[in-house]
Each structure stands twice: as C-alpha cells, then as structure tokens.
C-alpha cells in the first residue's frame, strides 16, 4: 500500500509562490472577491506562511509552503457529521463536495488550518470564459475544500500502471506544486518504497513534521537545517 508523502525542502524553497499559482489553476480553485479576500476568505489550497524572527539588523525569514498534511489519523474526518471528508483507500484525505453541509467542523478540527470554505459563489474570469481542468470538479458555495495532493492525477497514473501491468514508478505521480517548483524544493512520492527519493529525504537528519506531538501522523515533511 503506497504511502503518498510530500517532502518540502525549506533550504531550497525561495518562497516564489509558483506552487500556489499552479495549484489554483490545476484544481479550478476560484478567485475570491478583493474585499472578501482581504477579510481572510481567500482560497488557497497551497498557502505560504511567512514568519520573521531575530532582531534588526539580524533578521531571518521563514517561508513555508503549506498544503493539506493528509494525516494518517486525520482529526477532520472524525468530526464530519455527514462523512463528506474521509480517508480514502489511497491514504489521502478526500472531500465529497455534494455531501458537505458546510458546518465547518472539519475546519475547526484541523490543527494545520489547511481547509478553506467557499463563502460566496465562486468567481471566475468574467463571461465564464474559462477553460477548466476537466479532471477536477468545480465546487459550489457553502462547501469546504482543500488540497487533494492532486488525487485526480493519481487516478490517471494508476489506470496507466494497471493497463501496463506494472506498479507506479517513483516520480510518475506528481502534484502540480511539485511539478512546477522552480527550486526543486518539493519532492513527492511513496514513502513505503525504499528506492524512492521521498523515502530517503523523509529519513534525513533535516526532516521534521509540524506539530508531530499531536499524533495525527501528517504526511508532509519539512527539511531544514535551521530548526
């Protein structure tokens, strides 16, 4: 059973934001009205945390891309009253949008604040002149959504692998953020596969997980010399 894991190398990440943009386009994430966006209702599946520390002039800055952590023991799925969010057979935390009643219990339960809520009708290019990614369904107002590790790509890769009667190769299944990262900071793969890049990196001395003591077993590792 593959364990899809993401490793983000903070020593390489420059904070350029390419992952955010790629994620929004790939997953048909709507644009939010400017006023509402500044009220904190902006929809980023992949977000960027910025933190300064140190005293001037010795300032250091931490930029941390933050997707959904796809915990192995996700707290969000346990509180969902309608089973709209669940741990799917691939080990990814998935959302079923048309089941979601918009109670936002899962948002409250998520320790990483990875989930976002559609407060308003989604906004696209005016005149609906868009070309959406046909592999990802659009969401309606009043549902919770979040990073899916681009699971629609996994479906495709799995199909291909089954047709060719082989297992999925390392690097074959890549979410959009890992694919476009100009700094090669995001590595994605199967942490159970001992030959994979992710297996090596997640066992690196630089690797750590955020809020590991909660016991939710997140599947996103960060590499950094500093922490």
């Amino acid at each position: 059973m593959p364990k899809w894991t993401m490793v983000i190398d903070l020593d390489k990440c420059t904070g350029c934001g390419a992952c955010i943009a790629a994620c929004k386009i790939e997953n048909n994430v709507p644009i939010v009205d400017p006023i509402q966006a500044n009220e904190g209702r902006v929809l980023f599946w992949m977000d960027m945390i910025t933190q300064y520390h140190g005293d001037y002039p010795h300032i250091e800055i931490d930029r941390m891309p933050k997707p959904c952590f796809h915990c192995e023991h996700p707290p969000c799925t346990k509180v969902c009253p309608v089973r709209a969010t669940y741990l799917n057979p691939d080990g990814l935390v998935a959302q079923i949008y048309h089941r979601c009643i918009g109670c936002r219990y899962c948002m409250a339960a998520c320790p990483y604040t990875s989930k976002v809520f559609n407060w308003y009708e989604p906004m696209w290019l005016d005149g609906n002149y868009n070309c959406f990614n046909p592999d990802v369904s659009l969401r309606m107002v009043g549902v919770v959504e979040k990073c899916s590790f681009c699971s629609h790509r996994l479906l495709k890769v799995k199909e291909e692998a089954v047709l060719q009667d082989r297992s999925i190769m390392d690097g074959e299944y890549q979410p959009a953020c890992a694919e476009v990262c100009p700094a090669d900071a995001i590595t994605f793969g199967d942490a159970e596969d001992k030959n994979s890049e992710v297996y090596k990196l997640s066992r690196s001395y630089r690797a750590s997980r955020i809020m590991d003591d909660l016991g939710v077993e997140p599947k996103v590792y960060y590499l950094s010399k500093r922490s």
Binding site: G17, A18, A21, A22, I25, V180, C181, P182
Partner: peptide, 12 residues
C-alpha cells in the same frame, strides 16, 4: 521545468 506564478497563469 520550473515556472513562476506569472507564467503559470498565462492562460488568463
């Protein structure tokens, strides 16, 4: 293979 956010949104 790298991209910047501006290039990614070129379809807009």
């Amino acid at each position: 293979g790298g991209m910047c956010p501006l290039g990614i949104s070129a379809l807009q």
